[in-house]
């Protein structure tokens, strides 16, 4: 869990805060968990990722759509690493591999790094509207492949 938070938030202190808040929420909301609707792991990680996204926004990250060159390079490494580490046999990997590279990076970076449409657009130097429709097409293809 700490690894997921650290990857998204980059800062160790924020990541620990996120995991801590997540565990408190898990404790408080345990009665809301319904095992017939997906795995406990998925439920817990969703809470964690939501905390991370809230912290990211609090950091005012959505305004910074023009990151430093160094950050871009590091983001790219993290995103590619996440994709490369997916088990070769996993459906998600096979289906992500079927997408063109920029779409795949956009989808993985939003999940793994918490990037918003704006941040993705900033990194690609593309208009926000086209990035949105283009991620949507990618998600459509991905869902079709996964189903």
């Amino acid at each position: 869990m700490l690894g997921v938070a650290r990857r998204m938030l980059r800062r160790a202190d924020l990541a620990e805060d996120a995991v801590q808040e997540c565990l408190v929420l898990v404790w408080r909301r345990a009665d809301q968990f319904d095992p017939t609707r997906g795995s406990a792991k998925g439920w817990i990680y969703t809470i964690l990722r939501n905390r991370c996204l809230t912290l990211l926004r609090r950091e005012d990250r959505e305004v910074a759509t023009e990151p430093a060159e160094f950050d871009r390079a590091e983001d790219r490494i993290v995103v590619d690493q996440a994709f490369d580490r997916l088990a070769a046999s996993s459906d998600l990997r096979r289906c992500l591999a079927g997408l063109d590279e920029p779409t795949r990076r956009a989808i993985v970076s939003s999940y793994v790094l918490g990037h918003s449409h704006g941040e993705i657009a900033g990194r690609l130097g593309a208009p926000l509207g086209s990035v949105k429709s283009w991620v949507r097409r990618g998600l459509g293809k991905l869902r079709e492949c996964l189903s």
């Binding site: 700490l2 690894g3 997921v4 650290r6 990857r7 990541a15 620990e16 995991v19 609707r37 997906g38 795995s39 792991k41 998925g42 439920w43 990680y45 969703t46 990722r49 690493q81 996440a82 994709f83 580490r85 997916l86 088990a87 996993s90 459906d91 998600l92 990997r93 993985v108 999940y111 793994v112 869902r143 996964l146």
Partner: peptide
Amino acid sequence: LARARDGFLALDETAETLVL
């Protein structure tokens, strides 16, 4: 929602394991 969520879970598992 839960099913789609579990579909992406594999990406969470690619994160480093860090010690608390």
